[in-house]
Simulated assay, not measured.
Amino acid sequence: MPNERLRAAMVAGGWTHVGLAEATGVDPKSVERWVNLGRIPRQATALGTTLYNSLYRADDQLLANAHVWGVNAYGAPVWHLRRNNDGGMFDTYTDSFGAVWGTAHPMES
């Protein structure tokens, strides 16, 4: 199954199979497989970008904007989660945020 998102991102960015292959350090045939066959790049060849989510929380409701490489935030999915039970998706996102927040350090002036 072709990867239409990757194809669209390549068109929008002006990337060719050869250009993307050179930028990621893989063979152009690999890029062709990613685009035409929907193959997933191995982690060793994954593009060097940080994928993240934006979280907006109010009490027991949360909006999670799952950012997608090559797609502007307004075009990426937003999930509206409500906390119903312990251990659900809501808790997964809030626990993840708490873990990241716990590694933060105050900025020095």
Score class of each variant (00 low, 15 high):
104 A>Y: 11
52 Y>N: 00
77 P>M: 14
63 L>S: 02
80 H>P: 13
60 D>N: 13
13 G>A: 09
76 A>E: 02
16 T>D: 01
7 R>C: 01
16 T>E: 00
57 R>P: 01
15 W>L: 15
54 S>F: 09
56 Y>F: 13
96 S>G: 07
25 G>D: 02
19 G>R: 08
49 T>Y: 06
23 A>S: 09
8 A>I: 00
89 M>D: 07
53 N>R: 07
30 S>A: 13
83 R>A: 09
39 R>F: 15
27 D>H: 08
85 N>A: 10
4 E>F: 08
43 Q>W: 05
77 P>D: 15
41 P>Q: 11
47 L>A: 08
21 A>Y: 04
102 G>M: 05
75 G>R: 06
28 P>F: 13
106 P>W: 09
16 T>W: 02
19 G>N: 03
99 A>I: 07
43 Q>Y: 05
7 R>K: 13
57 R>H: 02
71 V>R: 05
57 R>C: 09
15 W>E: 07
48 G>I: 04
67 H>D: 09
69 W>Y: 10
15 W>N: 04
9 A>K: 02
47 L>F: 06
34 W>N: 05
21 A>K: 03
1 M>N: 01
17 H>F: 13
104 A>K: 04
46 A>M: 06
55 L>G: 00
88 G>Q: 06
16 T>M: 14
19 G>S: 07
45 T>Q: 04
21 A>Q: 01
16 T>S: 14
58 A>W: 11
74 Y>D: 06
107 M>I: 12
38 G>I: 14
75 G>T: 03
49 T>E: 06
71 V>S: 01
40 I>M: 11
102 G>R: 11
78 V>G: 03
106 P>L: 06
95 D>A: 15
32 E>F: 05
51 L>H: 14
103 T>H: 05
85 N>C: 14
37 L>G: 00
92 T>W: 13
29 K>G: 11
26 V>G: 05
